[in-house]
Design a protein around this nucleic acid. Structure first.
Lengths: 211, 211
DNA sequence: CCTGATACCGGGGTTTTCCCCGGTAAAGCC
DNA sequence: GGCTTTACCGGGGAAAACCCCGGTATCAGG
């Protein structure tokens, strides 16, 4: 019995290459390819039979990996999914896992390891690789206590992502420097950093602000 | 007569997949694969015959695309090269072309287009795709007057994009704090900013560093 | 030989950032 | 009424970042 695979990745060259690679593994078929999440959902809806495992790129235009995974999980809970990404970023890993992915694979994984992981996911429904071998419980836990920012905190964060001093930010927000210092402290805690530079970088990674 | 291809890309999965894909084109052989520029140079030195065309990823650890292209061009001027990248960034395109690449290909190119481009490069020594169809003259011109960073400055900039203090950066770079302070001053001038936060943001915008 | 570019360093200063202590007031919720 | 959350504030002090003055050594090229 063959294992049917679906792949979504916005880089056509990678998509086609990977497709060919997986086809070359014995017992694997590629049944669907898509350049983004939306395309994948459309194609799944018109497929005679669902794939066993979906490989989803994390970063895609139109509909990204997390949104796609969540949608697929809701519509077709039987379909197993693996996230595929370049970077092993904590926040992204938990996001994908919470969206229903069984594994988080890095794009520099070796082909034989990929084959093994696909088999593991198909048969046991799970797979553990290095990047994923972080303490999941800790990650999920820290994501539970969801760090939502208040309006003022968000406003401060946006202003902090600039060449402005805190004093200038205080003027812009119509508060005293001490108050801005308070927001700084809150954000340092929420983002788990200890410098303004770190805060800016973390805010960009979590996409709380954009360049 | 077959066309012999060499590929360098740090993402193993992509490297192997692409290798398989190109092998499947009729008349193409993959003669060398490498995970970074240094590895590629080492392997080229020990090869019985040189490849006809090299595909070089722009972003690689140890030795990046531009450095590799320049080195290959110097050692083996007969070898044609194509840059391979995710983003079509003006600065990167000119850098690669000036380093001796015949073409700049995006990773979302279609496989048949890749095949065509490889043939074109092999026979005519050039190829024009969309991303490269920008006004070269304008690009080159603007690069002439462009601030280029030295290796140490680039190194400092990368380290500055973190939670590290300048003192810690000095230790990592094996220099005194005063020296790091000098790099900071140079970068502030080149990027036209007046705070570390501004420097980090500007570096990200100019894609001198990545998140 | 001289110039320019690069890498490196000493010592001084001011401003900003970071990190504590403490506090008030208002709005919403059971 | 308590309880929580949010917004706001004063003051002080240590560390980091920022901004000057000056310097040496090397290496490549006209």
């Amino acid at each position: 019995m063959n294992i049917n695979i679906g792949i979504a990745d916005d880089h056509q060259l990678f998509l086609k290459s990977l497709s060919l690679l997986i086809s070359s593994f014995s017992g694997f078929n590629i049944v669907v390819e898509a350049m983004n999440g939306k395309e994948m959902l459309d194609k799944l809806a018109n497929l005679p039979s669902l794939p066993d495992v979906l490989l989803l790129d994390v970063n895609m235009p139109v509909m990204d990996g997390a949104k796609t995974a969540a949608a697929v999980f809701k519509l077709y809970p039987g379909v197993k999914m693996a996230a595929l990404s370049m970077k092993d970023n904590d926040a992204t890993i938990i996001e994908m896992l919470k969206a229903g992915c069984c594994a988080y694979l890095l794009k520099d994984i070796h082909p034989t390891e990929l084959e093994k992981s696909l088999r593991d996911i198909h048969t046991t429904g799970q797979y553990h690789n290095d990047a994923a071998n972080v303490n999941y419980r800790r990650l999920i836990l820290q994501s539970e206590q969801k760090q939502t920012l208040t309006d003022r905190e968000q406003e401060f964060l946006s202003l902090a992502c600039s060449d402005l001093t805190y004093k200038a930010i205080a003027v812009k927000m119509n508060v005293t420097e001490r108050t801005v210092d308070g927001y700084r402290e809150i954000l340092f805690n929420k983002l788990n950093v200890q410098s303004r530079t770190g805060m800016v970088l973390e805010a960009l990674r979590r996409q709380l602000v954009s360049l």
